[in-house]
């Protein structure tokens, strides 16, 4: 009747419940406070008592769920779905979205310490990952044919992913280029503009000549870029913002106003 999982979790629950009562009374709890969650009388030290009671409640609940599931034993699961032999868990296809999600979470963390805009970028990445991840998980289970599943997934997501990736790439380039140009001198900005244009042209030409770029190269580029963005964010967080000089009065504008 009582499964091993139930015994583990319920054992923890009972042990911690007793611990909470002992702790409550030994730290100044009065009347029946420690026995009634503070309903009648004090519970003693709140930190210890509340955490112990919380732990006990959660462990007990987990124990009850596990006993309801019969410890999720293979035989019990097979009985639940009405088959004799429960199959092994099928392999799921590989996906880069978990790693992108981790970088998104890292970006959010850096953004929380540095700037809300970076946090929003991280949030957008995580939201995109949540949707992509869900679609991957759905496609994995659409049919029993992995190739058909992949095709199905791409048919739905590619029309969204390709424009979104294009917009994101343009956005990143524009943002990065603007930061560089704002920091460069007047002549330097011209050189930087030409250099950036050449790099974009070069990448475009490379992609046009070799449309099926090696996935490893793309993965490496994305990893390096993501790492650089995070590291840059941390450095910026620690160094703080650069000093902004007051803008020079525009003589011509003054002349016009006169």
């Amino acid at each position: 009747m009582f499964t091993t999982g139930f015994k583990l979790y319920f054992g923890i629950a009972v042990g911690l419940f007793i611990a909470a009562i002992v702790y409550g009374y030994s730290t100044g709890g009065g009347h029946v406070g420690p026995l009634t969650w503070g309903w009648k009388g004090g519970v003693g030290d709140h930190i210890g008592y509340v955490v112990l009671m919380g732990l006990s409640t959660v462990a007990g609940t987990l124990g009850l769920i596990l006993v309801a599931f019969r410890d999720a034993d293979p035989a019990a699961q097979a009985h639940y779905v009405g088959v004799d032999q429960l199959p092994s868990t099928p392999m799921v296809t590989g996906s880069v979205w978990p790693v992108v999600g981790a970088f998104g979470a890292g970006t959010m963390v850096v953004g929380l310490a540095l700037h809300s805009a970076i946090f929003v970028v991280g949030l957008v990445i995580c939201a995109a990952v949540a949707i992509e991840w869900s679609m991957d998980a759905w496609a994995d289970r659409a049919t029993g044919d992995p190739a058909a599943n992949r095709e199905l997934r791409n048919r739905i997501m590619a029309p969204i992913e390709i424009p979104a990736a294009g917009v994101a790439t343009i956005g990143i380039i524009v943002l990065a280029a603007s930061r560089i140009l704002l920091n460069a001198s007047k002549n330097g900005a011209v050189i930087w503009s030409i250099a950036i244009a050449v790099v974009i042209l070069g990448i475009g030409t490379l992609y046009a000549t070799k449309p099926k770029l090696n996935k490893n190269i793309i993965a490496g580029l994305v990893l390096v870029t993501a790492g650089a963005v995070l590291a840059g964010g941390i450095v910026a967080a620690v160094d703080g913002e650069r000093e902004f000089h007051p803008s020079q009065p525009d003589d011509s504008a003054e002349e016009h106003s006169e």
Partner: peptide
């Protein structure tokens, strides 16, 4: 007709969510 996706363990998601 495409083959039906293999059955999944019905408790995995629930146990994960429970934890």
């Amino acid at each position: 007709p495409l083959p039906v996706a293999p059955a999944r363990r019905p408790r995995t998601a629930l146990v994960g969510a429970m934890l």
